[in-house]
Write a protein that binds this DNA or RNA. Structure first.
Lengths: 190, 190, 190, 190
DNA sequence: GATGAATGAGTGTTCATTCAT
DNA sequence: CATGAATGAACACTCATTCAT
């Protein structure tokens, strides 16, 4: 029967995220995760090769989900600034709806486990947005600087502002998100 | 009686940084750090109350050093853009000279240990720069948005660009640092 | 899955008692106990929450066993002196048969761990004997003094005489036990 | 200069007793005792060969003091019952005045360290009382049983009644001490 | 004589993982 | 498939003692 499996797998996914967010990566042992998911530690090894693979696959699953959500209703035909503004909002929306997912990815990205991720696989979930920036450069709407620099002023500010540890005073309401976008756009636009 | 050995203390400081950078916070056990510093694990407890205090004090020491370096030759009388540009370069300089210190602070800031830092103490090492932004707002040179937003487009881009994991393609040469500064300034200037 | 191994559990029980008797409470480390029981130190934590709980539960188990044995063939209808004499002999019998159990309880009662025992639980194993003393007072057969005083002249002499460290010269043969009982009865009888 | 030494030695004596009573033998480490006595751990080794010798000599010193006090105003010419009654009271007095000394000896007597005491040396401090019992037997005032049995009904009841862990309800006032003596005398008298 | 620094050996406990059922 | 039992290896930390001053 498949149903049972899926229930256990989902419980494991959520338990992993919950525990890592609560007590951190280092303290999240296999048996604690198992207890949180209400399964036996041994059962984890039915679904995952080892602890490492459990944590990595949890990360990739979140990133996949995030990529899909960001691109919902993605309309390539709009003016470039409008596309990016929509993406900008989508990111904040996603984090507002799934703060625990975002928190997990942040913790994960700074753990030794991030080295084990297949980066291409994750990146491809964000291909459409990425492409927008390259088009903006071609169309001389966006500054002709390296992609890393553009991300440092578009993606990383989002990440920083959404991280309560870094930005305790930033409240992610429409007004603040809008005014932050102004800075992002001023930064990257030609 | 013997006197406290500053050579041992320094070796411990460097060993802690080296090991954390190599294998991460979670895997950096007291005995591994001791071995790296070529002292006995028990000796660590002569210099530090516990593991936590060792890691936190290492962080604070780096931050202090960083703050001092950033503010060398700090000239408050220059035009605001020039001050910030100078600070911008100083940051990249510092990271270029002490990449291992920077890497440690990045890892630390995302570890559970960061909660234990006396934030005021650390922040005060950066007071002069912080003050420049507030002055810029008053003088209507910089956009009147929250400090968190300004940092998201000034400090965090530096951090992101200097993190090889996030920005593998960004080479921190003068040209690239300069062009990144253009984006930062465009973002925050009125 | 495997089922909990009662052989291991019993070996642990006996190993704990043996080691504590041989080298004392303070020196009886978890790993030494494990080695004596021929199991892994980690396995102890399958059966017991921690060292404390191992030692306390070992004590309670002995006390339970002792209480049951003391009350075998307990006949409440006999004359009071005969009941107490029977109990008196039963105590010495028990100690003669299980000197290692007795020694453990003596060491335990003087260790910091004794504070962690649920005293009511242990006391209830001895309820029938305890009741005899109260009846003796009511029936004006036994002196009307506090229960503590009665025990000081009935129970503690047994304990002292059975402790080879305190009474090296007392040989617990029938003649000596009988003559000691004479003193006990003379002490408590009205 | 001798003064300094004596001050340190006394501080060490009291610190040892205080700490052992507070946290038990097992937890009383050399460095904790040193801290309590406000000296360096290394200094302890100036006065004592090792930890063991520190604890044992502390015990012997108390026993010596106790023996002396018990025998103050000791009058061998009184009727035997009066001598023992006086000794009985002296014991309770001593414990009332120096509960911390008594507590230490109780803890010590049940630690593995007691095996290291020169028993003859300690016993000789109590020789005069001991002799009274032998005289009582000769004079057919006291039951002709082994010395161990007599102690089990004279000394050990005192110890039991004075141990708050064993006898929580016994309040050592004159009335209770007196009535307890009645039992002791009834036990041992012919 | 007196000290704080220094340490090898040990502490109680948890870990990721495997095993037997 | 699913499990709790079992464990070697590691953890952070403390110990009694010695060393250099």
């Amino acid at each position: 029967m498949r149903t049972k499996d899926t229930i256990k797998q989902d419980a494991l996914f959520e338990a992993t995220i919950k525990l890592v967010n609560e007590i951190g990566f280092a303290a999240s042992s296999v048996s604690k995760i198992a207890k949180e998911a209400k399964i036996s530690p041994a059962t984890i090894y039915v679904y995952h090769k080892n602890k490492e693979e459990l944590l990595v696959s949890t990360y990739v699953q979140i990133k996949k989900n995030m990529g899909h959500t960001i691109h919902e209703y993605f309309d390539d035909s709009l003016p470039l600034r409008d596309i990016l503004k929509s993406v900008w909002y989508k990111f904040f929306d996603y984090i507002a709806i799934h703060p625990e997912y975002f928190q997990y990815t942040e913790q994960f990205a700074n753990s030794p486990y991030q080295a084990l991720v297949n980066k291409e696989e994750v990146e491809k979930y964000f291909d459409p947005v990425i492409h927008v920036f390259y088009r903006g450069i071609e169309q001389k709407i966006i500054k002709d600087v390296s992609f890393d620099i553009l991300m440092a002023f578009f993606l990383h500010p989002i990440v920083a502002l959404s991280n309560p540890r870094l930005c305790q005073d930033f409240e992610p309401n429409n007004k603040n998100i809008e005014s932050a976008f102004t800075l992002a756009w001023d930064a990257i636009k030609l």
